[in-house]
Write a protein that binds this DNA or RNA. Structure first.
Lengths: 209, 209
DNA sequence: CACTGCTCATGACAAACGTCATGCGTGGGC
DNA sequence: GCCCACGCATGACGTTTGTCATGAGCAGTG
């Protein structure tokens, strides 16, 4: 760190929908002389477009953004810009999100509770080709385990998320009402929930929907 | 603004549970030479304690914090430290929260989508004794209107939030099951929801619970 | 090939839920 | 003092649910 400065700085894209935070982060990262911010974005699609235009080394993506969330952007970048390393920062560290992110080829998953200095270090780590996962989130993810839900159970549960009656869920999923009730029932019992609404809540907490 | 600099800088307390954002904001505010950060906090109770210890002119409080949310802290400060002006910053601008905040004597309500420069201006505005409310949030709050729910309807709805069955809600509220169902029914019809679960969702969106 | 697990469906039954009518008490407004 | 809005309750009704048994088609695995 105190030895010879790197010949070429890390080119970074920063995507976050909150100007206040994005601006503040940009200012802090600008203090690091081996990191240069080449683009900023406030939405998922914008992040993708900016990345394609500016070809950063590392894309720092907020998890929750309008348009497309960080993991979706990372997935697109993986094919459209394979040399670009992606990392996710987030306020809400749900275990399931971590899994989803890693599956999408994300190299780092960081909660917003870290310091800016630490974030800069992680950017360097990622740029060097390594991975980083917040230890606490990793522990949560391991203890939460995999989703016990089958694909259809998860799908039906998601459609039930806004409190819609079974008839509507059935129509939207093109299933019979009886089938929908069966899936909801098995999903709820797998999650140890009293009813589908509590099941939705639990699945959400664990990032399984 | 471009005239003589103020003789004494604004003493500011900054409370946010995300280190990354708090640190970044602190750095940005430090650039403003008429603003000095006298304390930082990561939780509601900590914010209160720090405020009492350092007596800032303005307390900048995040709405969502562990322990006690920004509005609760503001309420406490109003009585414990009346000279301290409070302002709320938040990611999620629900109309109801704005109402609640203003009722608690908060002088400004700002979404995190503003720029740091703007935030600094608002801090000065608040310090000067004026108020500031984000125009867009204000419009939302006005169009959303007041909660049509009675106290008990809101209370029962809140207990129903986690998907608990009527029997459990009745037990927790010390009401009969029939009464609970009546309240839930009237609340749902007032909100135009199909059932209590959708009603909970709607009420949450509008900040009425 | 047999076996297992997922998908999708049907029918039936009990429990939970939404709705309505009705009633009583209490406190504020005119 | 009367009336109305609200809080609280009960009982009854039909509908929506959760649950279970059962079965058929279809993938993947040993």
């Amino acid at each position: 760190m105190t030895s010879a400065p790197p010949p070429r700085p890390v080119r970074v894209l920063l995507a976050d929908d909150e100007h206040l935070i994005r601006g503040a982060l940009a200012a802090l990262l600008a203090l690091e002389d081996d990191i240069v911010l080449v683009a900023e974005a406030a939405t998922g699609p914008e992040a993708l477009a900016m990345a394609l235009a500016h070809r950063p080394d590392v894309a720092v993506l907020d998890l929750e953004m309008p348009g497309a969330d960080g993991v979706n952007v990372a997935t697109s970048l993986r094919t459209r810009l394979p040399d670009c390393r992606t990392m996710i920062v987030t306020s809400h560290g749900r275990p399931g999100h971590l899994k989803r992110a890693l599956a999408a080829g994300v190299r780092a998953f960081v909660p917003k509770t870290v310091s800016a200095r630490r974030l800069a270090e992680i950017i360097r780590t990622v740029h060097a080709g390594n991975r980083y996962v917040d230890p606490e989130l990793a522990a949560d993810a391991i203890s939460a385990g995999d989703s016990p839900l089958t694909a259809r159970e998860a799908e039906v549960l998601e459609l039930a998320a806004d409190g819609a009656p079974v008839a509507e869920i059935a129509a939207r999923a093109s299933l019979s009402q009886g089938t929908v009730r069966n899936y909801l029932s098995s999903a709820a019992s797998k999650l140890g929930a009293e009813n589908r609404h509590a099941a939705v809540r639990l699945a959400r907490e664990r990032g399984w929907v």
